[in-house]
Deep mutational scan, measured.
Amino acid sequence: KLPPGWEKRMFANGTVYYFNHITNASQFERPSG
């Protein structure tokens, strides 16, 4: 399970990334916590 605010998303080319809808942060590494 991801930390609060984070969700797993995917680009059109299939690349997975993680987006935080609270802070609008995005990253390729899975957030810890």
Score class of each variant (00 low, 15 high):
Y18D: 00
M10Q: 12
R9D: 01
Q27N: 04
F19E: 02
F19N: 01
P4Q: 11
Y17S: 02
K8M: 15
R9V: 07
L2D: 05
N24H: 12
P3S: 05
F28R: 09
G14F: 04
K1W: 13
P31Q: 01
I22N: 10
T15Y: 07
A12T: 10
V16A: 07
Y17A: 02
G14H: 02
A12I: 08
S26G: 07
S32Y: 13
E29P: 06
R9S: 03
Y17D: 03
A12H: 09
T23W: 05
K8R: 14
R9P: 00
W6L: 01
E7V: 11
I22Y: 12
W6G: 00
P31E: 01
R30F: 15
N24S: 10
G33V: 13
Y17G: 03
V16M: 07
P31R: 01
P31Y: 01
F28G: 05
N13I: 02
F28Y: 12
P3F: 03
W6Q: 00
H21M: 12
P3G: 07
H21T: 15
M10V: 14
K8Y: 09
N24E: 09
I22S: 07
N20A: 01
P31G: 01
M10D: 04
L2I: 06
G5D: 06
N20P: 00
K8A: 12
N13T: 06
S26H: 11
H21P: 09
S32E: 13
V16W: 11
E7W: 05
I22Q: 09
E29V: 08
P4H: 12
E7Q: 08
E29T: 10
N24F: 10
N24Y: 08
T23V: 04
A25M: 14
R30Q: 09
E29M: 08
V16H: 07
R9Q: 05
T23D: 05
G5F: 09
S26T: 15
A25P: 01
E29Q: 10
R9I: 07
G33N: 13
G14Y: 02
N20E: 01
N24T: 07
G33P: 12
Q27L: 06
P31S: 01
K1H: 13
T23Y: 06
Q27H: 05
G33M: 14
